[in-house]
Simulated scan of single mutants.
Amino acid sequence: MVIETVLFDLDGTLMDHDAAESDGREYDRAEVLEVWHRLERREYDRYQAGESTLQEQRRLRAAGLAAHLGLGPWPDGRADAWFEGYLWRYRNGWRAYPEVPQVVRELGATRRLGVITNGEGGIQRAKLHAIGLAALAPHTTASGEAGCAKPAPEIFHLACRALGTAPERTAYVGDRLDLDARAATAAGLLGIWLDRTPPAPGTSPPADVPRVRSLAELPALLG
């Protein structure tokens, strides 16, 4: 089947979220980064599932990091203030991965492009503008506006309808195997896993979805 439309995840796929987070945090140890990523994924996934509010998940991430660092329990006010400072530094670190502009230009010459992201629409579109991908902002489906979130098939179908494309003629690429690639596949799209981690000895790619190590591999994969 010919792929007419390519949809992307944003954080960790088009935008170097980890690098921006390194600018946002006050602590740079690798072990702290691992804890912060674990807190982010756990609390943001709970927020997307409707188990907490946006502000509550931010507080839980800040308080969880403080507890890990031995700073004691943080009241809501202190957690809110720390997270506001984090967000200011994080926004200053927004940037695309090096290969992204060329890949977007190349694919955009022959295909429709868009974004599906679990996040608040205003913030996510601001990221696209900041990293030089403003043309994708009007074609962005954000969970905060859609009323559904990845991995639910509804958000993939909603994005396809918005761009006037059939799921079977649409590819979706993201950096999380289950939340992105496999969820897109289950929704009837061509799900592609972007795995930027260095390959470990003895590991093999998943059998159910294509894997790329860089977005620069996409044009050749899609033909």
Rank of each mutant, 00 (worst) to 15 (best):
G85W: 00
F83Q: 13
P98C: 02
W94K: 04
G119M: 05
Q57F: 12
E51G: 12
A66Q: 10
G85C: 00
A126H: 04
L107P: 14
R112F: 08
A109M: 00
L107E: 10
Q48S: 12
L60Q: 15
L71R: 12
R125N: 03
P138S: 02
A135E: 15
V103T: 08
G122E: 11
V115M: 08
G70N: 06
R112Q: 13
L136R: 09
P101V: 06
R125T: 14
L71G: 01
Y97A: 03
E99P: 10
G64T: 03
Q124C: 05
T110L: 07
P98S: 02
E51T: 00
T117N: 03
L54T: 02
V104R: 07
A79W: 07
L87A: 07
K127A: 06
Q57N: 12
A79V: 06
Q102I: 00
P138H: 04
L69A: 05
P75R: 04
T53D: 05
E120N: 09
A109N: 00
R61H: 12
G70S: 10
N92M: 06
L136K: 10
H129Y: 12
L113W: 14
P75V: 03
L69C: 05
L65F: 11
E56C: 00
A63L: 07
V104L: 14
R58W: 12
P73S: 04
L60G: 00
L113H: 14
F83E: 10
H68F: 15
W88C: 00
A130F: 09
A135C: 08
A67E: 15
D80C: 05
A67F: 09
G121M: 01
E120C: 00
R89W: 11
E84A: 15
W94H: 12
L107Q: 11
V115D: 12
Q55V: 10
S52F: 01
T141E: 09
G93T: 04
L71P: 02
D76E: 14
G132T: 03
A109K: 01
A63M: 08
R59V: 13
A81M: 03
S52L: 14
A135Q: 15
P98G: 01
G72P: 10
L69Y: 11
Y97V: 05
A134G: 14
T117M: 05
D76G: 15
G50K: 08
H139W: 15
H129L: 05
E84F: 00
H129Q: 07
P73C: 02
A81C: 01
Q124V: 04
R125S: 02
K127M: 07
R111H: 13
A135H: 13
R78C: 01
G50P: 13
W74K: 02
L133P: 13
G72C: 04
G114V: 07
